[in-house]
C-alpha cells in the first residue's frame, strides 16, 4: 500500500460481518486521514463508527481489507500501532473503585512511561483538565463531566501521534465540553492527529477540519464541513447534510 507521508490512517476495502447480522457492519470501506487533521467520523447509531475504530485499534479483526496507521499494518504491527495511538472509548473505561491517580498511573505505566515522567505528566494533565483537587478520589464518586475528562487524560498520557475519540463529549455539561474541546485543539496544534466520532453535528461542524459520514457500514460523504454543506445546496448546516444523507428514520 502506498503510505503517503501525510496520511496517518489508510484503510482500504475493509469489510466486517458479525454473526446473526444480515448486513455487514463495515461494508467495503476505504478512508484516508491526513496527519495533523481533526477528522470527524459521523453517522447514526449502528452505522459502523465504533466497529471501524475497533478494527483500526486491533480490538477486532476485519473480515477482509487492509488498514495502516503511521505506515504500520494493523494486523502485523499491532503493538507499534497501539504504542503510537491513544484511545478514548465511548464508555468511561476506568476502574471505578480506584482513585484518579491510581487509574492514570496504571494506564500510563502500561505504556512503559518512566515513573518520574509519568508522575509529572499526570500532575500536568490533572491541572489542565481541572481535576488536580480530586486525584485521591475514587472514580465512581466523580461527576459525569469529570469522568469524561479523566477518560481523555488516560488516552493521552503517552503523547500519541494519533488520538481516537469515540463520542468524547456525550452527556456532559457545557463547561466540561469546552475544556475538553479546547484541550483537544491544543493537542492538535502540538501535532496530534485526531479522529473523533460524535452525534453532535454543530460541535463537529465547528471542531473538525474534515469529516466523513458513514451509514450501514459505507462511506457516503467525505470532506470539510464547509465543503459538505456547499455540495448539498439545499442544506445550511452539517446537521442538514447528515439528515439528508442518512434519513430521518430512528436507528437502534
Amino acid at each position: 500500500m502506498n503510505n503517503g507521508e501525510q496520511n496517518i490512517i489508510e484503510a482500504e476495502n475493509l469489510i466486517k460481518r458479525y454473526k446473526r447480522m444480515q448486513v455487514p457492519a463495515i461494508d467495503n470501506l476505504s478512508l484516508k486521514i491526513k496527519r495533523g487533521e481533526i477528522f470527524g467520523l459521523l453517522g447514526p447509531n449502528g452505522a459502523g463508527k465504533t466497529t471501524l475504530i475497533n478494527i483500526l485499534t486491533g480490538i477486532s479483526k476485519p473480515g477482509s481489507g487492509r488498514a495502516f496507521i503511521n505506515g504500520n499494518d494493523i494486523l502485523k504491527d499491532l503493538d507499534k500501532v497501539k504504542t503510537q495511538t491513544g484511545i478514548v472509548p465511548q464508555e468511561i473505561a476506568l476502574y471505578p473503585t480506584l482513585t484518579i491517580w491510581e487509574n492514570l498511573y496504571i494506564f500510563g505505566s502500561l505504556y512503559n512511561i518512566p515513573h518520574k515522567i509519568l508522575k509529572k505528566r499526570i500532575d500536568e494533565f490533572l491541572v489542565i483538565y481541572g481535576l488536580e483537587n480530586k486525584k485521591r478520589s475514587q472514580v465512581r464518586r466523580l461527576s459525569g463531566g469529570m469522568k469524561r475528562r479523566l477518560n481523555i487524560i488516560a488516552g493521552i498520557l503517552h503523547n500519541p501521534g494519533l488520538l481516537i475519540l469515540d463520542e468524547p463529549t456525550a452527556g456532559i455539561d457545557v463547561q466540561s465540553k469546552v475544556v475538553i474541546l479546547d484541550n483537544l485543539r491544543k493537542l492538535n496544534r502540538d501535532g496530534t492527529t485526531i479522529l473523533y466520532t460524535s452525534h453532535y453535528m454543530d460541535e463537529a461542524e465547528r471542531f473538525c477540519s474534515r469529516a466523513a459520514i458513514i451509514d450501514y457500514g459505507k462511506l457516503i460523504a467525505e470532506g470539510s464541513p464547509a465543503k459538505l454543506v456547499e455540495e448539498n445546496t439545499d442544506c445550511n448546516t452539517l446537521e442538514d447534510v447528515f439528515i439528508k444523507l442518512t434519513g430521518r428514520e430512528i436507528r437502534e
Binding site: D79, I87, P89, A93, L94, F107, L110, Y111
Partner: peptide, 16 residues
C-alpha cells in the same frame, strides 16, 4: 466488571 466498565477494552487498546 472490567468488561462492563470498559477498562478491559482500554487495556486491550493498549500494547498489553
Amino acid at each position: 466488571k472490567e468488561r462492563d466498565d470498559g477498562s478491559f477494552t482500554r487495556l486491550m487498546f493498549m500494547p498489553v
